[in-house]
Design a protein around this nucleic acid. Sequence first.
DNA 1: ATATTTTTTTAGACTAGCCTAAAATGAACC
DNA 2: GGTTCATTTTAGGCTAGTCTAAAAAAATAT
Lengths: 237, 237
Amino acid sequence: MHSFTEENYLKAIYALTQKSEGSPDGSPVSLSGASSDPLPVNTNAIAERVATKAASVTDMLKKLADKQLIHYQKYQGVTLTETGRKAALNIIRRHRLWEVFLVDKLGFGWHEVHSLAEELEHIRSDELIDKLEAFLGNPQVDPHGDPIPDHAGQVRHPVSQTLSVTEAGQTVVVTGVLEHSSSFLQYLEKIGLVLNAEVLMRELNQFDKSLFIRINHQSDTFISHEVARNVLVSGKG
Amino acid sequence: MHSFTEENYLKAIYALTQKSEGSPDGSPVSLSGASSDPLPVNTNAIAERVATKAASVTDMLKKLADKQLIHYQKYQGVTLTETGRKAALNIIRRHRLWEVFLVDKLGFGWHEVHSLAEELEHIRSDELIDKLEAFLGNPQVDPHGDPIPDHAGQVRHPVSQTLSVTEAGQTVVVTGVLEHSSSFLQYLEKIGLVLNAEVLMRELNQFDKSLFIRINHQSDTFISHEVARNVLVSGKG
DNA sequence: ATATTTTTTTAGACTAGCCTAAAATGAACC
DNA sequence: GGTTCATTTTAGGCTAGTCTAAAAAAATAT
């Protein structure tokens, strides 16, 4: 099959493809994958994501194109073929299931699991992953609220919006985050803005768009617009 | 730290060192690691174990010697340094804990887990392994009865003997196996000669040393000497 | 429309780990 | 002690993936 390194490139290309979609203002979207042909991904963007140089990326792109995993024409960027997309989603499936394992079973914090899952995800055994999935109780999302693709590469993107576009008086539930950095996740945990937390939007400051919210009927908290636009929520119930 | 490949060499050298110890006839031994300087391991033996050529082994031995993981002098074979031995035991610790996970939690058979554990063992995170160990309930042995080294590289080799040297009338408990091939393990499982099974030695055939045993007070079974000398047991209670 | 800047690709070189073929060493036998 | 044989090491070369520097193409600005 594909090497460790090839898998990382596929994952990077997939992630960059996704990034170029979605609504810029945070309003409700169901990224159901039904979106038409994605924009081609740049060599430099891939280089940054896999922490290497553009020249190395070009080499790998040729290799992936030979293997029919990407559509590639010199200087024109790349998109995944259907085979490549399935492969990428399979890696993401493995990654997210391991994250659930690390958090739910081993007791890691949601900010600690990314890099471990990046290693675990490269163990290619469908039997292992299927058994792991069953053992975890067939979870639908990972600890950050990101959906877990199924066998066939189907992803159920839950409909959600960012906390920043919620209106005063509304009550919503945290369903995910857009930013995955460790420091951000640790901050959210500290203020209790974790997955499934209930948020009552009390006040929206017109000037800087900062928010005054009540979390789980208890703690009144100020959060910045920057934070709010990286937290995904959906209507209660 | 050490690469994936280096780890496999260390593991191979450790295993070959162990193999050259132990009693040849199957009588009780507590391989408590207290044995003096082990015999040096040959280049060819390592080559066979890591499925490569002797020339490649020589290359790697130089590298491991540079890193102070082995004692190496040209044409004289190698032994592990204390650092190397600790590293090897740490890999084995990871391997065996993952095996317990695969069997106890995911429901794999004891004959299926070796190769998956060979991949999982290379994820180097003490925190991961310690949490996994706790999650598994601090097991002392893996699904084949092999002891799990602790943090510090201590291995508690349980005192045991092979089933082939048990005397008629004795009742013993299966504590492990010496042969780990998938077909052997599947055979043992089929006849119920699994870990912790209670075995009453009924008759020992003088001619071919085959045995007639009763397993768990139920099934009377014939097994060959070849099988018996690969099953480890200890006195009941 | 041309010049400049940015992006991407090519060219050539490096490392880890592997290989084959040949040379060196050690062991075994007379 | 010398010859033969097996084992081990050296020498030189291969691939995957990386790098730097330079060339080529595309995008941008004038």
